[in-house]
Amino acid sequence: MPQSPAAPLNARRVLVAVVPPVLAIGAVLVTFLSLRDRLPDRMAVHIGSGGHADGFSGQGAFLATALGVLIGDGALFGALTYWIRTTPGVQRTIAVIGGTVAVLTGWLIVAVLLANSDVTDASSVTLPGAQAALAFAAAAVYAAIGWLTCGKAEEAEESETVSGPSTGAERLPLGDSETAGWTRVAGSRVLPATGALVAAAGIVIGFTTGWLPALPLLITGAPMALLTGARVTADRRGITVTPSLTPWPRLNVPLERIAEAGHRTVNPVRDFGGWGYRARPGASGIVLRSGDAISARLTTGSEFVVTVDDAATAAALLNTLAERERERRTATGG
């Protein structure tokens, strides 16, 4: 399948992702510098249940951590928004998530600084639950504004077309009474590393601004860090993909849904907007790395891909088995 040409950059989406981190950094710096003489040397940096302080840090360490989180947010989501141009729907979502996280994080950091002003004992610092509610409300408002600002995702997706596998319908010779199966483990280095970074960011935010805003990052990062690979099997059941460490969750594309199989080169960011289970108009699949992939054209006209070594052999076997299944169903009237 030929690679999609690079789509033109939608500058609005990049701005939606990077402007909130920049503004949040400015707000944090202005607040910190204006309150510096009124802040205790030992600041309360984590507010536990009940709104009372249970974590502490020096002024410099708190500021460095806060700015690092915001800079990382802007750099990560800004870069992803720039790179993911051929899948506008994913690009739009990434941009809005990046900006929304920055609004939420920046609000809570400023709230913690204000709560520490003019106190002599950091352990007496409290943060009313209303502040968290306001932070989430501001994030929700920005998410709505950012979503509208990004524009419709269909503008570039409407031109997407699904073509057949590049290698044609090659077949693996099998006798009438013979059967065969193929299986390989497909690994990923990007997903575990990304998951570890996301989980680490969640831990940092948990210790600095609170565990409630950190929860989405921890829930997302921990499973991603454990997703080290998948077992891909091609046999009489069709294409089956399971995590390499556990038998579930299981994804199966049965033979009767496969019109033709081939293989092609896949670039996760350019073709699908990222790694893992991906879906875009006309195509879906398990994308764990760049390189060779099984490319199955389904009876619905859409494409299903799985990145794995020796995809050509798997595709040839699937074509043979799928043809045999069609002949069997025709003979039995199924």
Score class of each variant (00 low, 15 high):
residue 145 I to G: 01
residue 56 F to W: 09
residue 81 T to F: 11
residue 49 S to H: 11
residue 34 S to G: 14
residue 87 T to Y: 05
residue 140 A to G: 11
residue 127 L to M: 14
residue 64 A to T: 10
residue 34 S to P: 01
residue 71 I to Y: 06
residue 143 A to E: 04
residue 90 V to T: 15
residue 61 A to Y: 06
residue 35 L to R: 12
residue 138 A to G: 12
residue 68 G to M: 09
residue 58 G to W: 00
residue 148 L to W: 12
residue 158 E to A: 15
residue 91 Q to L: 09
residue 59 Q to G: 10
residue 94 I to W: 12
residue 147 W to G: 03
residue 142 Y to Q: 03
residue 102 A to N: 02
residue 120 T to H: 13
residue 113 L to T: 08
residue 96 V to T: 10
residue 95 A to K: 06
residue 144 A to Q: 03
residue 109 I to K: 00
residue 132 A to C: 03
residue 156 A to H: 15
residue 35 L to K: 06
residue 96 V to L: 03
residue 70 L to K: 01
residue 152 K to L: 11
residue 69 V to P: 04
residue 56 F to D: 04
residue 56 F to N: 02
residue 134 L to V: 15
residue 41 D to W: 03
residue 46 H to T: 11
residue 157 E to Q: 13
residue 50 G to T: 09
residue 111 A to K: 00
residue 162 V to H: 04
residue 134 L to E: 05
residue 96 V to G: 09
residue 104 L to F: 10
residue 59 Q to I: 01
residue 150 C to Y: 02
residue 142 Y to V: 07
residue 77 F to Y: 14
residue 47 I to Q: 00
residue 99 G to W: 07
residue 122 A to H: 07
residue 143 A to V: 03
residue 52 H to M: 13
residue 151 G to P: 02
residue 103 V to S: 04
residue 74 G to A: 08
residue 148 L to M: 11
residue 64 A to E: 01
residue 127 L to P: 04
residue 54 D to T: 04
residue 129 G to E: 04
residue 51 G to V: 12
residue 129 G to F: 07
residue 102 A to F: 02
residue 39 L to S: 05
residue 119 V to C: 05
residue 128 P to M: 05
residue 100 T to S: 15
residue 62 F to D: 01
residue 55 G to H: 09
residue 36 R to M: 00
residue 99 G to L: 07
residue 49 S to T: 14
residue 96 V to P: 07
residue 157 E to P: 07
residue 164 G to F: 11
residue 39 L to R: 01
residue 159 S to R: 11
residue 41 D to G: 13
residue 51 G to P: 08
residue 143 A to G: 14
residue 158 E to W: 12
residue 103 V to P: 02
residue 82 Y to H: 14
residue 121 D to M: 04
residue 76 L to T: 14
residue 53 A to N: 01
residue 110 V to Q: 03
residue 102 A to K: 01
residue 50 G to V: 10
residue 101 V to C: 14
residue 111 A to W: 02
residue 120 T to D: 15
residue 163 S to F: 13
residue 83 W to E: 13
residue 58 G to L: 00
residue 35 L to E: 12
residue 92 R to P: 06
residue 103 V to T: 07
